[in-house]
Design a protein around this nucleic acid. Structure first.
Length: 279
DNA sequence: ATTGTCCCCTGCCCGC
DNA sequence: TGCGGGCAGGGGACAA
């Protein structure tokens, strides 16, 4: 599920529901996620107030009183449930119980996600966050970011954009969608980016993420529920998962051979060969 | 250093 | 209806 827009949506939901609450108890039913949840996790966060939230790439940082932060990562299948029932749910590995009775559950069937604790003033040196590229919706992300990072990189642009060191928060869906909007073939060597192409790409990345956050926000209420899926943005996918269909820009056009699916670096890539050309 | 392959794990969907 | 194979929104570890 979670790329930047989904993580942003989840974080906003948590913020609304949990901010200023105090953690009465934390239940850890399974410690063996992508990395082990520390043995003293519950003890460390117990009694602390939830003071704020921040997102960095696909990570959520939950700031607690006393200078500690909980780092959340949802992996591939992670979800947050803001009204977790008393009965344990399947794959609900962690539950935070607040003093006012609210229960926040962390559900992750595949267990590719993680939860950890870090001192708030050391969030950015936490190994998984250190070295991460700029936030694509902040002002320090520009076409120059892409130009500089892609220099001498012969890797195809698609896996290049999945590298969190280049830009934070992009995943398989939004990389495909951004490349489509920018008219760039996913197979193009990253170093073939020109300034005009980089401008289009940076703008396409910002646009698609903002639109997706907007759409996720519109279904916020249902999003952070186990049965809540992808928000509404899935209906706006122009190429992702659209194999064989005419892409949205050439619907029914005789020349359009339809959206193609290829594999790059072990992941599916969707693109329109008609509209996306190598430089 | 850069790039590609494999793997972690469970669930779901498709074809036979 | 049942079963096996392939695939899934992430990303680290490793080999070449």
């Amino acid at each position: 599920m979670p790329e930047l827009p989904e993580v942003e949506t989840v974080m906003r939901g948590m913020q609304i529901a949990l901010q200023n609450g105090t953690i009465k108890e934390a239940i850890v039913r399974r410690h063996d996620l992508r990395w082990r949840i520390p043995a003293d996790f519950s003890q460390t966060i117990k009694g602390r107030r939830i003071e704020g939230f921040r997102r960095r790439g696909k990570y959520i940082l939950m700031r607690l009183s006393g200078g500690m932060s909980i780092i959340w990562h949802l992996g591939m299948s992670g979800r947050v449930l803001l009204d977790s029932p008393t009965e344990p749910l399947l794959h609900e590995h962690v539950v935070l119980i607040l003093q006012d009775g609210k229960r926040c559950g962390y559900i992750d069937p595949r267990r590719f996600g993680m939860l950890d604790i870090v001192p708030t003033d050391r969030e950015d040196t936490y190994p998984l966050l250190a070295g991460m590229g700029p936030e694509p919706l902040e002002s320090d992300f520009t076409f120059k970011t892409l130009l500089v990072a892609s220099k001498n990189r012969r890797m195809p642009i698609k896996p290049f954009l999945l590298d969190q060191k280049v830009v934070a928060g992009l995943g398989n869906i939004y990389v495909c969608e951004a490349l489509f909007r920018a008219g760039i073939a996913p197979t193009m060597p990253a170093c073939n980016l020109t300034a005009p192409k980089a401008r289009k790409l940076a703008q396409a990345i910002r646009d698609v993420l903002e639109e997706a956050i907007e759409a996720g926000g519109s279904s916020l209420k249902d999003y952070v529920r186990p049965e809540g899926g992808l928000g509404y943005f899935q209906h706006a996918w122009r190429v992702y998962g659209q194999t064989g269909k005419p892409c949205s820009n050439c619907p029914g056009a005789p020349a359009c051979s339809g959206v193609q699916q290829i594999t790059q670096a072990g992941r599916s890539t969707f693109f329109c060969p008609q509209r996306q050309k190598n430089g």
